[in-house]
Simulated assay, not measured.
Amino acid sequence: MGLTTARLRNRYRRLRLGRRGLSPLARANLAALDGLDRRAPLDECSFVVLDLETTGVDLARDGVVSAGAVRLRGGRVLLGQYFDEMILPQGEVPASSITIHGLTPQRLAAGRPLAQVFDDLAGFIGADIVVAHNAGFDLHFIDRHMRAHHGLALQNLALCTLRLCRALLLPSDPFGVGRHKGQCRLDAIAERFGLDTPQRHTAIGDALVTALIFQRMLAMMEERGQARLGRLIALGQAPR
């Protein structure tokens, strides 16, 4: 889609929403694209890398049980700036999902309602660029909340490390055979970069390992002379 198209859509939303009584969060989020410059060096950009743990992979039926995010700026993961929240279940938590993320209904009872957590997550993101692995999945839940409670999808530019993996790490696949696709699983990329994954399948743990992977991808682009925001968008913009 590119930054220009994203801005045009954002402009259309501003015109459509007009002077409606938007929430402060929605008004702030409408300006998320304003400060971006596609010519900007990547070490001058600020990113929030996030992950959601869910009760399954059915976008229509499953819910979110935890959210994690870390900030990356100047090529550094800012370990002191993180978001880590459990969410009260919106329905049944299947045993099959508990075996993956380890969050039982008893543990989740200490969480907060999804609307509160997602509002705070949007506040934590601010105007930063959002990054996630298979980002379209996580953004679906965030956008659904934003539309329901604030009248618009999250306006932030979003990048997908799965797409970046295919662009930066995989051999050329001109015939679309896809035989290297498994190399872009999160575990496979972490192994490629020699990264440990001690908190795998927790939201904050997966957000952190995704941030470390993304950090190394940015370094690769720097080595290749591609370290500009416009090039990063071209390689890894998330589908919306």
Rank of each mutant, 00 (worst) to 15 (best):
A219W: 06
L232T: 09
H201V: 09
L59N: 08
K181R: 15
E53Y: 08
D138L: 04
R163S: 09
T161D: 00
E44C: 12
L229E: 03
T202V: 10
G230P: 05
L159C: 05
D128P: 03
A26P: 07
G151M: 01
L170I: 04
F175C: 13
A135I: 02
L17Y: 02
T161K: 01
K181G: 12
S66D: 02
G2M: 08
G230F: 03
A132R: 06
G230N: 00
I189N: 04
H101G: 06
N134M: 07
G35D: 11
D37A: 11
T197H: 12
L30G: 03
G236C: 02
G136M: 11
Q116H: 12
R112K: 11
G18Y: 04
H101L: 06
L52F: 14
E222L: 12
L30A: 04
P239Q: 14
G225L: 04
P239T: 15
L22Y: 03
F175K: 15
G2R: 12
L212Y: 02
V65C: 00
H201Y: 06
R147S: 09
G63Q: 13
R61P: 05
G91A: 14
P24G: 10
A95E: 15
H149V: 15
T202N: 09
H133D: 07
L72I: 03
R14L: 03
L3I: 05
L8I: 13
A6F: 07
A31M: 14
R163W: 01
S66Q: 07
Q155A: 13
A238V: 07
R144E: 10
F118L: 14
P89N: 02
L235K: 11
D196K: 15
A95Y: 14
R19L: 10
R107S: 09
G91S: 14
R71Y: 04
G68S: 08
Y82M: 13
L164I: 07
P171F: 01
A238C: 11
D43S: 07
P171L: 00
L72Y: 00
A158P: 05
N134I: 06
R107W: 02
S23Y: 04
M221F: 03
P41D: 01
R71G: 01
E85H: 11
P174C: 07
A190K: 03
R38F: 11
L78G: 02
Q183R: 15
A211Q: 02
R39G: 14
M146S: 13
D206I: 05
H133N: 08
V131E: 02
